[in-house]
Design a protein around this nucleic acid. Sequence first.
DNA 1: TACTTTTGTTCCAACGTTTGAACAAATATA
DNA 2: TATATTTGTTCAAACGTTGGAACAAAAGTA
Lengths: 341, 341
Amino acid sequence: MVNKKKTTIKDIANVLGITPSAVSKALNDHPRISKQTKAAVLQVAENLNYQPNHIATALRKGKSNLVGVIIPRANSNFFSSIIEKIEDILNEKGYNVIITQSNESYKKECQSIEALLFTQVDGIIASMANETVKLDYYNKIKQKGIPLILFDRGENDLNVDYVGIDDYMSSHIVIEHLVEQGCKRIAHIGGFSHTRIYKNRIRGYIDALKKHKLPFNEDLMYECNLRKSDGRDIMKKLLSLPVKPDGVYISGDYAALGALEALKAHNIKVPEDIAIVGFSNEPFSEIVTPGISSIEQHSEEIGRLAAETFLNRIDNPNEPVTLNKMILEPELIIRASSKRK
Amino acid sequence: MVNKKKTTIKDIANVLGITPSAVSKALNDHPRISKQTKAAVLQVAENLNYQPNHIATALRKGKSNLVGVIIPRANSNFFSSIIEKIEDILNEKGYNVIITQSNESYKKECQSIEALLFTQVDGIIASMANETVKLDYYNKIKQKGIPLILFDRGENDLNVDYVGIDDYMSSHIVIEHLVEQGCKRIAHIGGFSHTRIYKNRIRGYIDALKKHKLPFNEDLMYECNLRKSDGRDIMKKLLSLPVKPDGVYISGDYAALGALEALKAHNIKVPEDIAIVGFSNEPFSEIVTPGISSIEQHSEEIGRLAAETFLNRIDNPNEPVTLNKMILEPELIIRASSKRK
DNA sequence: TACTTTTGTTCCAACGTTTGAACAAATATA
DNA sequence: TATATTTGTTCAAACGTTGGAACAAAAGTA
């Protein structure tokens, strides 16, 4: 049997011959309600299978207890484990999480923001699409006065909380490792430099080359969307150079996979001829042949920090919002794709 | 400047010297409101940067325009592309999608259901965790009278709409292919048989063996969680048998990856010594060495059907809910892991 | 002119919950 | 006993929107 009519606080009140407000207070464990009444209310609520109407509470309290999370794509271990952690922490505090994917599209991202604001979320935790350069929609969130926390892909200009890893340092770690393995001509397949994190990786790449007295060569650096196909196509271009690189640092494991595919097609030995290092430590990176060396970004930690920062903002609504960067240390996981020794 | 105080319908009414209900009707393009009033309201709404309070509408209308989606894990191409499609279709119809992950845990799944019901979603589209056997929480959804659509992982007992592929037939396609490649001793690493879809695949496996006059051997069949490590561990067991299999049909690509890892460690040639076929056609399956043959489940089509079925239920609330299975045809993508000829 | 219909608006109650103020009864204090 | 305090509850308004009923004014019809 389907029970369409929902039990309300009023039904409980009628059964007990008390008022709805007494019931509400009993359910919320108000100190001025007697123990007996509370017990009785709980009992009747149980019997009638009472389910509180969250929407009414939200309207009354001006708080939806919903938090929006925007990610470029769910199909990534990095993002999905961040979300898992965010959900864990926020659910425990009574929040529900609405996840939306931008699919790396600025347009979809704007729609997501619209939709989340429309749903009256209490805050937004987001990682920006690679495509995004205009910050108008993000500013809209700020203007609403609800907390906005960025992670991984952020922009300093927004002057909000940010959680991410030290991208500049990541590049240094990667280049240092490749140099140790004997690489002398290191290429970089990066994300677009208009995105802060990729810009930092590129800066890090260039500075690290300098540090190790290796020449920087424009032909060895590409910017792309870091999809598997991008990695494959750019690798092909690198292979057609008169002097090929002997090491490639790729800003994403999907692109690194694509690059490996191209190398396989050209019968080039990895890591002997060309060493490869990726980024993000996707689960497959461990098991492809050869395993892909990659930067682990400590996604759970990022998720935890993002969620806690949100909760902190909610608890301290009057604290002025400024640029507040929480930067974690990257870790290089070395695998066969770059281990020559 | 942060504008905390939100503009309401009342503010617009005050500016124009009309009543809030006139404003509401104007905004909703009510036929009895004059063109001039509508234009004026729209203008003032624009000026005051009016954003409708969705929660109030939800309370009044008894409809949240939120749809919950429960998936075992987002970190899977199959599920994330289903979600993408569901979002596409439902967003267009004014719905927002709340995605939650069960992480294959029954407990987490129950929590998700609780949370979604608490948020007053208008319906739930779900794929069950492997662990799940008790249907009490799903029955709770049914009792609430809101649409419940299952996809991929479902249970006939719930008697609701279901979208998925023909698992039984998938096994037949796989076995037929392996037999064609000359396999005579085909093992199966499957999901747990208490789950309908895995049970069907197992049934299909056994029946297909029979059909091709191959003996069914209990030692060659395992049930597991289909994680990478499960694939690896079970493959090791298969390799320790006195007579090894010459083909393995694995119900998930992650497990298939693990199996390949074990085979690699034992220097066994794929597909010559042992041919491998996986399931789900994950993106990495295409590029590992060797590429993994896999069953493509047409995830977008599943997402589309699930979303449309939900909309259909919403539009026809009085139509009685019964078992309504929409079954799609599977497609085998043949790659190096099983292509001997 | 008298009556009906149409048009454009206001009125009011409702959705389910919360919360401060008010109030009566019970208990404590002098 | 009179007064102050505490306890347990009710009252009433509010959150922002919606939509049917009511109603006056304008327009149409006989």
